[in-house]
């Protein structure tokens, strides 16, 4: 399943809720304000690293660029996708869960 998260993990618990309920083998895509969670050195980095042992985490490049966050700041293992990649992920997965 593809999970998208569009809220900052520092403001809401959407990402926490997502990570708690996403099964191994999920794809998790951070979009809009959610992209701020993908940066190295934050208070939530270890949660992402742990999740990536069993699932994949992606981040939407255009939303990252809008917030002045460069790709070299990302937690290792997180993959950047563009809008086309977003569509591919949605198509590859049987369902999409949009955490708000």
């Amino acid at each position: 399943m593809l999970h998208t998260v569009n809220k900052s993990p520092f403001e809401r618990n959407s990402l926490d809720a997502c990570l708690g309920l996403a099964k191994a083998g999920s794809a998790i895509l951070l979009i809009e304000d959610g992209v701020v969670g993908a940066i190295k050195g934050t208070t939530i980095e270890s949660k992402l690293t742990e999740t990536m042992q069993s699932s994949k985490i992606y981040v939407l490049g255009p939303d990252l660029a809008a917030r002045g966050l460069s790709e070299d700041k990302l937690v290792d293992g997180i993959q950047v996708v563009d809008y086309g990649g977003f569509v591919d992920l949605a198509a590859e997965n049987t369902a999409v869960q949009s955490w708000l």
């Binding site: 900052s8 520092f10 403001e11 304000d33 701020v36 490049g61 255009p62 939303d63 660029a65 809008a66 917030r67 002045g68 966050l69 460069s70 563009d82 809008y83």
Partner: peptide, 19 residues
């Protein structure tokens, strides 16, 4: 404060989000 710090990051580029 909090996520407000992202408002003043350098190098913001919004051409791909249409804003």
């Amino acid at each position: 404060i909090g996520d407000g710090v992202y408002q003043i990051t350098k190098g913001q580029s919004t051409s791909d989000i249409g804003m």
